[in-house]
């Protein structure tokens, strides 16, 4: 099976996120970068499906030249091909991103044939627009379902499970198809030493794509005003248990 997984490079914040002075980006000066979590699981899922069915995984990202790091990471856990749609690193709006990805996928499919399955992350960890995958698939005329936490391949189709409150919905799609996956669909593997070495040799195909900007524009990022709660310290250690249970009793829970 020919599988494409689209990923996004995002900063890896800890307990707090800071914003640059112009308010247009996350201040990543002291942060590492990672693959957005849903998409990290997307890569793992793509590799597992390729291992089961025989096939190859291509990983695609849109971002600055540094995003090659995320392509190489995907290669270190089993992706075979890397594609970078190159930008200057500024934040692209969802319509523009989708237009560029659509053009890149059309070009890849014209050269190498249609991807049987395309995986997106349900939403990116940073801007969280919840729409790029859907826009790309509509442009390609391909079905997509989001929120997927389980995929089984069956002949010429896939069965996909979507978590809902207290269970799962099941979708059945004929290939070619696309799915928006969520963290929890699998536990991503760590790269092996051999994988790391192989990833250094990954040849990355780079596209420069002029895509029209969409109609949503970033003005500035800011941290929400936090309601500073005065934490009431009930005590230390197990001796504080009665005070803690008093709180529960006041809420009518005991």
């Amino acid at each position: 099976m020919r599988i494409l997984c689209c990923v996004k490079r995002v900063p890896a914040p800890g307990a707090k996120i800071n914003v640059t002075a112009d308010g247009l980006a996350v201040d990543a000066a002291h942060l590492g970068f990672t693959t957005s979590p849903h998409e990290e699981c997307g890569v793992e899922e793509a590799v597992q499906i390729a291992e089961r069915t025989g096939g190859e995984v291509t990983v695609l990202t849109l971002g600055p030249a540094e995003a090659a790091e995320q392509l190489r990471y995907a290669a270190s856990v089993g992706a075979r091909h890397g594609v970078l749609v190159s930008t200057d690193g500024s934040a692209w709006d969802p319509q523009r991103t989708a237009r560029a990805l659509t053009a890149a996928i059309r070009s890849l499919e014209a050269d190498g044939g249609v991807f049987d399955l395309i995986l997106f992350g349900n939403e990116s960890a940073d801007s969280g627009g919840f729409q790029v995958g859907v826009r790309v698939c509509h442009a390609l005329g391909r079905p997509i379902v989001n929120g997927i936490k389980g995929i089984e391949t069956e002949g010429s189709g896939v069965r996909a499970r979507r978590e809902i409150d207290g269970g799962f919905e099941v979708y059945e799609l004929d290939l070619p198809a696309a799915l928006g996956v969520k963290e929890g669909i699998n536990l991503p593997r760590y790269p092996t030493m051999r994988g790391r070495l192989a990833s250094k040799k990954l040849e990355i195909t780079t596209f420069e794509i002029e895509a029209d900007a969409g109609d949503q524009s970033l003005v500035r990022l800011h941290r929400p005003t936090e309601t500073v709660s005065q934490t009431v310290i009930l005590g230390a250690g197990p001796d504080a248990a009665p005070a803690a249970v008093d709180v529960l009793e006041e809420l009518g829970l005991v």
Binding site: V19, A125, D126, G128, D215, V219, L221, P224
Partner: peptide
């Protein structure tokens, strides 16, 4: 909402 609510984005929309 960005970052699941850790950051907010002021934006304009030309509808």
């Amino acid at each position: 909402i960005q970052w699941g609510g850790s950051l907010l984005e002021d934006a304009t929309l030309a509808a």
